[in-house]
Structure formats: C-alpha cells, structure tokens
Design a protein around this nucleic acid. Structure first.
Lengths: 218, 218
DNA sequence: ACTTTGTTCGAACGAACGTTCGAATTAACC
DNA sequence: GGTTAATTCGAACGTTCGTTCGAACAAAGT
C-alpha cells in the first residue's frame, strides 16, 4: 500500500513552475475543490458521499476520479491549500511590524478575516482535523505545527518585552479555541465583521494575559 | 414519519420513579452507552459502524437493537445524559454563592472538571453537535440553550456589579471556545489538572473582561 | 414441571458506499 | 479533416452499511 499505480492516467498533473500557467485542468480542479468544501462542511467528511460531491459539482461520479485518486486525497488537497494560504498571508502581514502587542493583534485579525471569508473551508480544516491518516495527515499536521509555533513565538516575545508570566502553551491554545470555535456559532446577520471581532477578542485575550505581572507561572 | 412502530418489543423501558430501581436492563444499557461513547469518540459518529459498537461492547449486532431502536437514538442518549449531568451539577454548585466573579469561576471549574473527567463523552457532545436531526436534535439543543443562558446570566451579573462594558454574547462564546477546544489538545501527561487549568483560563478570561471599564460596547 | 417473559444471536435484507473500466465525447494540434 | 491526447461518463465491481426477523437461550413466576 504505497503511492504506486493510479498515476497512469493522471500524468496530466502540472509541475507548477514560477508562474502557475493556470491550465484548464487546474481551473476545473479548484472548482471541484470548492464544491467539495461546501459538501464536506454541510455533511461532514464521512457523512458526505462521492455521489453527493458528484451532484454538487455537476460532474459524473467517475469523472471526479480523473482529478484525484481518492476521497481522502480530496480532503487533503482542501486542507493543505487552506492552511497553506493562511500561514502564507500571516507571514507577509507580520513583515516589518515590530511591536509585540501589535504582532499578536495581526495574528488574530489574520486568522479571523480568513476564517470568516472562507468559513466552509475553515470548518472543514477544524472539524475534520483527525480523519487524514499517515502521509496525508502528517503533511497537514506539519503546517499546523508551524502555525502553532509562530503564535508561541509571538507570545513569548510579548512575555519577554513586558516581563509577564503565564503558560504560553495554555494561552496559545486558549486563543485558538476562542477563534476556531467561531464556526459553531457565527451568524453573519447577527455578528460583527472580522475587524470588530478581532478587536474584541484581542481585548479580552491581551488584557487577560497582560494583567499577569510577576504572578505565578505554570 | 414520526415515532410509531418499533416500540413493540421495547416495552421493557422503565419509568424511573423517584429512586431508580437500577434494573439489569438499565445497567446493561449504560454499559453499552459507555462503550459506544468510546467508539464515537475515536472514529466519529458517521465513521463508527454498528459492527464497531458490537465488537467493542461484546454484544452481537442484533443484540444491540434490543436496547435502542437506531444508531441516531444511541447518540441522542449519550448527548442528553452528558449534557443533562453537567447542567445539573452546575446548578447545585452555584447554590448559595453570591459573589459574581466567584460564580463565573465556578462555571469554568465545573465545565473543565467534567470535561476532563469525561473527555470521550464531552468530545462526542462537542464534535457531533450537528448530526442529530429533528426531535432528537431539538431536545439536545434545548439543554444547550439553557446552559448558554446560564452563562449569559452570570456575565450580565458581573457586568452590572462592576459597571463593565463588553458584548456578553461574544464573551460567552469566546469562553466556550477556550474550554471546549480542549478536546483537541489536552494531554494528561503534559497538561495540568482541571483545577489549575480552570484557574489559568479564569485568570485570562476574567482579567480580560474586567479590564473594560466604561470603554466601548458592541 | 410448565409457562411466561426478558435477553441474545446467526443469518439475511436492500440500500448505499468508494472505486474501476472501457467506451464515448470533446478539445488541441497539424 | 484527420490524428492524437485530454476529458467525461454509464455501468458495473465487491464491500460495508443500518436494520430486521425468527429462533434460541436464560430467568422468573407458578
């Protein structure tokens, strides 16, 4: 059980050089990915059947397999692209900003903006985080670890700069919880936009964490 | 399509009077519920098959249907019991405590203690919150709404007593996020016990929320 | 002992699952 | 227009799904 076979017909895969040529194949693939994201979001990965995906994307059941070799790889493509994009945007936004508090606020804003602009994809990323196995799972887990470590770095920076004392691990994971839980309750007709929510969550979290001068650690 | 039929053979249901007689039937049922909770936790509701549950609980596939009429009702029983218990414990712990901050801290401690002592059940409650439909879903949703409203009440109390200004809705849902996200990362060999975690999360959240004297609302 | 009721099971049901195959269709190039 | 390669599809594969049925076994009441 390796990565052999089924690559016969899929020799059409592009080797995206510097500028992606944006072929017909690539365009169609990301259309399908978009539809699949909606279905996974609504019914869950296990609950969504390949026939559901076929119906939603308007392509025949067999036709889908021209673009990916398995349902699992499809979820992998969605998660990898989503997570990769959010990390890449974060890095570019952090460039040139020195103030520690401001950098944490940028982290929160970047997360929430992308989360609310791509709710379906982010729910699939959060909610189906455990279903990918072996190679697929390991690759997504690596991006997640990088993202986590960036946030740890930002908070350690803040701690040192202001002489604070708190458990970085618990603070980071609490912050992720606040932000990622949104997919269970956010209603665009009731709740504010990403900017305001980032401000408010940033206030709660940062005031909470910065009011810990010299107190107990651990 | 309502709740007719399939109640022929299940006339064995007990009408739990004041003191539950704890019959053989009840005992066996909650054993099965326990095993099912573990399987749902590990593989997800959709990913777990009735044959998985049969294997884990040591009972034949057909035998399971003597205790519940469908897989969906099984999930309902788990969620209802778990959520009902946590609400009931919370109410009893809040009795006789007047200080607003202390009441919020009790809420957090109660949640985390139950969460860590019943991780599998709480993960099934959190992670499979959307799969129950119609009647089953509505009943669990009602308990959830009650639990949510209790927390809103506690925070409004705190706001009034200390003249604070923040969005109660966002604060409550952020707190739930911090707490419920735990099932994705908690490792008993690395992380502290429920008491310490409740203290730390309570510090972050309460300091954050209480540092908002007279500021902007909304 | 017999009857009754409660509990368990093997075997099967039809439906739905993910995936494959070979042929048909469409687009690209000469 | 004819040849080649890329794309799509209907039909089926074998497996697993949730659920049911009737018979078998165990316990309780007489």
């Amino acid at each position: 059980m390796g990565s052999t076979s089924t690559t016969k017909r899929i020799s059409a895969r592009r080797h995206r050089a510097q500028q992606p040529p944006e072929t017909r194949y690539d365009r169609r693939l990301s259309e399908i990915l978009g539809h699949a994201t909606e279905v996974f979001c609504k019914k869950g990965y296990e609950g969504a059947s390949m026939r559901d995906l076929s119906r939603e994307s308007g392509m025949s059941l067999a036709g889908l397999y021209y673009y990916f070799e398995s349902k699992e790889r499809l979820l992998y493509l969605i998660q990898k692209h989503t997570f990769g994009t959010i990390v890449q945007r974060l890095k570019s936004r952090l460039e040139g900003v020195g103030d520690a508090e401001q950098r944490v606020r940028i982290f929160i804003l970047n997360h929430l903006e992308y989360f609310l602009a791509n709710q379906a994809a982010m729910k699939v990323l959060s909610h189906e985080a455990e279903v990918l196995k072996n190679g697929f799972g390991a690759e997504v887990a690596a991006i997640k670890r990088e993202y986590y470590r960036i946030c740890v770095g930002l908070l350690d920076e803040l701690k040192r700069e202001r002489g604070l004392q708190f458990s970085t691990r618990l603070a980071v994971l609490s912050l992720f919880g606040m932000m990622n839980w949104i997919y269970t309750w956010h209603n665009p007709r009731v709740d504010a936009d990403a900017g305001s929510m980032a401000d408010e969550m940033g206030d709660i979290f940062l005031r909470g964490v910065m009011a810990s001068k010299g107190g107990r650690e651990k």
